[in-house]
Write a protein that binds this DNA or RNA. Structure first.
Lengths: 119, 119
DNA sequence: CGGCATCCCAGATGATACTG
DNA sequence: CAGTATCATCTGGGATGCCG
């Protein structure tokens, strides 16, 4: 265990991987805006397979970050929203996302400088 | 492109994957404390292969987050430290890490409740 | 000591088809 | 509409060996 209390395979790291996973981040950020139906999330996220979206939502629901509200109607309607816990997670993730936006240009300059100095 | 300006394969997402990757997070948090040699990072992180640590460090260096200082001595000595950009990234990541520590117990209760309601 | 090159595999992800 | 099931593919990551 290192100084931050996070090691390679501790429970905290697994939770962190759920919220920072490719689809986890996009789901959390989309839900930070408002509740979404399954198909709305698919459209908003862009290209994501049904399987991965369903799997991601189930993981986040199990962790208590996302609330699933399945209405007993035909055709089915399922709404996903953030819990209080999920809202906190989403804000952390959004902070990271916003940082990447602010600093993307600087990072790309750094890459060009790095690449320019070698084969 | 969704509302957060982040989609599945944009440059921002790649950058985010670098900083939130399994080894990226641990390296950034370790360097937030102080500069480390390669072998110090290996020990501090715990179980990490040389390959992944080297690869992670190269990626973070290329992104301009980590500074690599190779001293021309024998035996070789290489020190890694955070750049200003890297310090910002590391603080975001540490924020996420601290959140997982604060909320881990609540998440585990949520999982038990979830698991208790099905096969 | 601090790497890089190679091979290999489990697990993550995608594609497609099917269902309540 | 909102999934599940199955099969195929891709890739992060470990193991090993070599080198300046």
């Amino acid at each position: 265990m290192n100084m931050a209390g996070i090691d390679a395979m501790c429970p905290e790291r697994l939770l962190m991987e759920h919220v920072t996973s490719r689809w986890g981040t996009l789901v959390l950020i989309a839900l930070l805006d408002r509740a979404h139906r399954f198909s709305e999330l698919r459209r908003e996220i862009g290209v994501v397979s049904e399987k991965m979206l369903a799997q991601t939502l189930r993981t986040l629901e199990r962790d208590g970050l996302v609330h699933r509200d399945a209405k007993p109607v035909i055709p089915p309607r399922v709404d996903y929203s953030l819990t209080v816990l999920g809202h906190e997670a989403a804000e952390q993730v959004r902070g990271l996302a916003r940082w990447t936006e602010r600093r993307m240009a600087a990072v790309e300059r750094a890459r060009e400088a790095y690449d320019a100095t070698r084969p």
